[in-house]
Design a protein around this nucleic acid. Structure first.
Length: 466
RNA sequence: GGCGCGGUAGCCAAGUGGUAAGGCAGAGGUCUGCAAAACCUUUAUUCGUGAGUUCGAUUCUCACCCGCGCCUCCA
């Protein structure tokens, strides 16, 4: 079966194709840089990374745009409170975001674009909407009139037809014709930052930045637009309303949304206060690659209940895979190749690929890998594994790691050099031969204290960094 | 209320109209100077509850119970 994704727009799993060419035009909603991103945010970004990597694995080229929202109410409020300029304030958290994504081994999108650097594009988009009669002004702000857009609600599958334009729905929304209408351009309040423009002084509403930037870089119809489920409404619904009102063309072909990460069965969110940042977890001693594995191992459309147990399980699972790789690289096997194992390897790779083709079923893909690892270990123990089986097995691990990227140990700074470790191992082996086990154990402990783990095997001693 | 997701072993979790993947944890064992690593056996007669369709349902239908989310900023 070919590559296929669940499309929020159609509520169906559909074969993934491109209209033309081989480049996937993909847009993903990035962070609002008013604080550190939490791992709920990173669940979505990790999903998008797996998506990226699987598209590349399948031979597509990518033009992936991620926005950075660096102007919004919270940013302005916080920047003012800290007596910083907008740019100063957002720089801190933009930088932190980039550090975190690097630690989580998230590939950099082809373009990362900032809202504040695209004000003219947004103003132009609002002008186009105005020309087509989709806007109205109120108290100096410009609003989008959803009653003008017939398809409004098609992504979130809500029926808004019962809401009549002009009806007053809520006293708090007195300045809007319809409670669902949203702001495109906000009139400046006292002391707030604003831009002068052809449509008057103000700053952009949240939704217009994505429409303007996505279409600027990727054209009028994107192949993929992804984000968390909470963005379906209103954000993505509004992006459709804006973009399609301007172009009269479908804005996005495939809408992909990742489910939430929960803590104690509750949504993790900044407003609820029950959130962890990657930095929090690192302080508790969890490596980012462990977090990455946990986030990636649960299929993206399934709620992920985050827990310390889950992190520990992830850490152990990664160790198992790394141990297997180390064994492949260091053990010696008889010449030749075991045909049955070769066939077993091919089957496992096929299952792995089929699983990811199926709407990125990472849990099933991992199962294919782990079954193979067990079978290969069994064959090694039974002496049936041959030298010629090593390369295909390592190739499978490499394919796995092109997507999951967890086999490479996190950089451990300092410590002993490889040469010094080898030296001590030689000394220890000499001590063992002389049955001086006290000295041998002393060296083992010494190395362990330096973060080096020794494993004695039939072929000799192998080692790894903790 | 509207829209949507889910309830599978101690935990995480896949899956199919034909009788339950995988990971972690637990128990026992093999191997081993020590320590690891690895392997083997074992842990759901059962997939929220009830009814229906069917030769047969965890998988389809209906009802109900429970959990979560969106409908306001939010990954």
């Amino acid at each position: 079966m070919a590559l296929r994704f669940y499309n929020t727009l159609t509520q169906q799993v559909e074969p993934f194709t491109l209209l033309e060419g081989n480049t996937v035009r993909m847009y993903t909603c990035g962070p609002t840089v008013y604080n550190y991103a939490h791992i709920g945010n990173f669940r979505t970004f990790t999903f998008e990374d797996i998506l990226r990597r699987w598209l590349l694995y399948r031979g597509f080229e990518l033009d992936h745009v991620m926005n950075i929202t660096d102007v919004d109410d919270k940013i302005i409020r916080n920047a003012v409170a800290e007596h910083k300029t907008l740019a100063e304030y957002t720089a801190t958290y933009t930088e932190a975001f980039l550090e975190d994504t690097a630690a989580l081994r998230l590939q950099r999108p082809e373009r990362m674009v900032k809202a504040t650097e695209h004000i003219p594009e947004m103003v132009r988009a609002i002008e186009q909407l105005a020309e087509r009669g989709f806007t109205y002004q109120s108290d100096g702000s410009i609003y989008y009139r959803i009653a003008k857009f017939p398809g409004y609600g098609k992504l979130s599958h809500n029926d808004f037809s019962g809401i009549r334009s002009g009806a007053r729905v809520d006293v708090d929304e007195y300045d809007k014709a319809n409670a669902r209408d949203f702001v495109l351009w906000k009139a400046p309040k006292d002391g707030e930052i604003f831009w002068e423009s052809a449509i008057g002084p103000g700053r952009p509403g949240w939704h217009i930045e994505c429409s303007a930037m996505a279409m600027k870089y990727l054209g009028e119809t994107l192949d993929i637009h992804a984000g968390g489920v909470d963005l379906i409404f209103p954000h993505h619904e509004n992006e459709i309303a804006q973009s399609e009102a301007i172009t009269s063309k479908p804005f996005v072909r495939f809408w992909l949304h990742s489910e939430f990460l929960n803590v104690e069965s509750q949504k993790m969110s900044k407003s609820a206060g029950n959130f962890y940042t990657l930095r929090d977890l690192q302080q508790e001693g969890y490596q980012p690659d462990v977090v990455r594995y946990l986030l990636a191992s649960v299929p993206y459309r399934k709620k992920l209940n985050f827990s310390a147990d889950g992190l520990k399980a992830a850490a152990t699972a990664i160790d198992r895979l790394r141990n297997f790789k180390l064994r492949l690289e260091t053990d010696k096997y008889p010449e030749g190749a075991n045909e049955k194992i070769l066939e077993r390897t091919r089957l496992a790779v096929r299952q792995f690929e089929d699983s990811l083709d199926d709407d990125l079923n990472t849990a099933e893909a991992l199962a294919a890998l782990f079954e193979f690892v067990r079978d290969a270990n069994t064959a090694m123990d039974a002496g049936e594994f041959r030298a010629g089986n090593t390369a295909p097995a390592l190739d499978f691990l490499d394919r796995f790691d092109r997507v999951f990227d967890v086999l490479r140990p996190a950089q451990t700074e300092g410590g002993l050099s490889d040469a010094r470790v080898e030296e001590l191992i030689q000394e220890r082996n000499a001590a063992k031969k002389a049955r001086n086990f006290a000295r041998a154990d002393q060296i083992r402990q010494e190395l362990l204290d330096a973060g080096i783990i020794l494993e004695d095997t039939k072929e000799g001693t192998r080692w790894k960094r903790k």
